[in-house]
């Protein structure tokens, strides 16, 4: 009897809780992670990780070097630290990819939005973007091709892929991928979608050029 009553009350409470869950609405659909709206006229830093210059058509992103990917291969160039794959990129960014996307549009970029998860073998489209990297004590602004070793030797050519909605949905945190990507905001058009997964190419940070693990860097995106 006692157990029966226990079960009854436990069941009653559980049903109440389930009923509550079923009846309530979800949160508003929008940006995921901490927003980092692009700022203008400030120095790029960890506190101001996304700085836009509309006149010069550039966006600067604050990031740090992940030394692991100067040894192991990766397909993630620059990822938001709060994203699902924040630890899997050569550069760990502190800028939200959605805000980064909107900043790209603000400087006049045209998103390609031509890839989906089912378009393997195709190339990303959109505005051409020059990507450079520098840090305190660096002798110059290095191009992405100079700081990344592409096993096929092709030069890295970024395009503004777009993918705003899919980027929010998947929240991988990708700002810049090393092969054509249906999720990353920008990606390398020199390699078709799926080439890294198919082991046709590998990317590693160039440890002869890049500073030590954890060093802050500034990644600059400029519309060509």
């Amino acid at each position: 009897m006692k157990k029966l009553m226990s079960l009854f009350i436990a069941g009653l409470l559980s049903v109440s809780l389930v009923g509550c869950g079923a009846g309530s609405g979800g949160g508003e659909q929008g940006i995921k992670g901490t927003p980092t709206v692009a700022e203008e006229g400030v120095e790029v830093s960890q506190e101001h990780p996304l700085v836009i210059d509309k006149e010069a058509k550039t966006i600067k992103v604050y990031a740090t070097v992940n030394g692991k990917y100067t040894v192991e291969p990766t397909r993630h160039g620059l990822n938001f630290s709060e994203g699902k794959y924040g630890d899997q990129a050569l550069f760990t960014s502190f800028a939200n990819p959605t805000n980064f996307h909107d900043a790209m549009v603000e400087i006049g970029g045209t998103p390609g939005n031509n890839l989906t998860p089912d378009t393997a073998g195709q190339q990303i489209e959109g505005s051409d973007v020059d990507v450079t990297v520098t840090w305190d004590g660096a002798p110059k602004e290095f191009t992405m091709s100079e700081v990344v070793n592409d096993s096929t030797g092709k030069p890295i050519q970024y395009k503004f892929g777009g993918n705003r909605e899919r980027s929010i949905e998947a929240f991988t945190g990708c700002l810049a991928c090393f092969d054509s990507c249906p999720v990353g905001i920008t990606s390398n058009s020199s390699h078709m979608q799926g080439e890294f997964a198919n082991k046709e190419v590998e990317f590693r940070g160039n440890k002869d050029v890049l500073p030590a693990d954890g060093t802050p860097v500034v990644v600059t995106f400029k519309l060509s």
Binding site: S16, L17, C20, G21, G23, S24, G25, G26, G27
Partner: peptide, 8 residues
């Protein structure tokens, strides 16, 4: 945390 307690 954000919504369902009030709903409950």
């Amino acid at each position: 945390a954000s919504a369902d307690i009030e709903a409950f």
